[in-house]
């Protein structure tokens, strides 16, 4: 802490500056614009809370919030489950450890847009053909109903992000002192007991981080949504981010979209902060 002198701030300046220029300033501007009738170029009128009042009457926006919430719950559970599962798998001292880590992490390196199109092909053509061949009705017509669109998105996101979450869990798993586990083994603890009583509590901080990442990510998803379903059918798989973009650029209601974004920000921030707060309480000290 002693070295927070001039040079400390000097080195920090580029970051603070760019952060405030690209995040803070636009945020403040956007917040102000959300109270006006801004059309992207000029704001001629101050509307007060009118945008916010209209917003709560917007059925599409409410539907998209609900859809996003459902999506976030499902994908957070699935992602953490998969991430931890994969991490346990690749920390088992198998020969293929490094290869598997790479393979599992790989989807994360492909852009969301491309992934969306790839999975669109898989869901529609591959699933469809397999379904037809084997006579499984459930595999045909994917993405043409709300339910399949929803699960399509969950599958896509889980597949993409599980490797990333896996990396976080690996870091914690590898730091669990071996002596603790050995001692428990000698005491006659079964492998499930060891996992339940030693491994699990010790990776709790990883839950905090992964939950935060998956939660905020699931709420803000846009590109996967755009390329996989584009909100279809009939905008029923439209997430909040997409609803905001459409309001702004398709319907050209910039200020209204901005007010939606402010509400969205508040929701995401509230959820994320609550989650971090509760998870932090559960972590154990060694």
């Amino acid at each position: 802490m002693r070295n927070r002198d001039f040079s400390f701030w000097l080195f920090l300046t580029p970051v603070i500056l760019s952060l405030s220029l690209v995040i803070l300033v636009p945020f403040v501007y956007g917040f102000i614009y959300s109270f006006t009738n801004w059309n992207g170029m000029v704001a001629t009128e101050f509307l007060g809370f009118k945008n916010y009042i209209t917003l709560f009457k917007d059925a599409d926006f409410r539907a998209s919030i609900w859809f996003t919430t459902k999506f976030a719950i499902c994908s957070v559970i699935l992602l953490n489950f998969l991430g931890l599962g994969l991490a346990l798998l690749v920390t088992r001292n198998l020969k293929t450890n490094n290869l598997m880590r790479t393979v599992f992490f790989m989807p994360n390196l492909i852009g969301g847009l491309i992934l969306g199109f790839i999975w669109q092909f898989i869901f529609i053509s591959v699933f469809g053909n397999i379904g037809e061949l084997l006579g499984i009705e459930a595999l045909t017509g994917w993405l043409s109903t709300t339910a399949t669109g929803f699960w399509g998105l969950v599958i896509l996101t889980s597949w993409q992000m599980a490797g990333y979450i896996m990396i976080i869990y690996i870091a914690y798993l590898e730091n669990i002192p071996k002596d603790l586990l050995e001692a428990a083994e000698i005491d006659g603890a079964s492998s499930f007991q060891r996992f339940r009583n030693i491994t699990f509590p010790l990776v709790a901080p990883a839950f905090t981080v992964s939950m935060f990442l998956t939660l905020s990510n699931s709420f803000q998803i846009y590109d996967q949504n755009l390329s996989l379903t584009n909100g279809g059918p009939f905008n029923s798989t439209q997430m909040v981010a997409m609803n905001i973009v459409k309001t702004a650029f398709t319907e050209n209601k910039m200020a209204f979209a901005q007010s939606k974004a402010v509400i969205f920000f508040i929701i995401v921030a509230a959820v994320a902060i609550t989650q971090v707060y509760y998870n932090k309480k559960k972590e154990v000290d060694m």
Binding site: A171, Y172, N175, D285
Partner: peptide, 8 residues
């Protein structure tokens, strides 16, 4: 506060 994470 020393949490497990810093061990890494």
């Amino acid at each position: 506060m020393q949490t497990v994470s810093w061990n890494c």
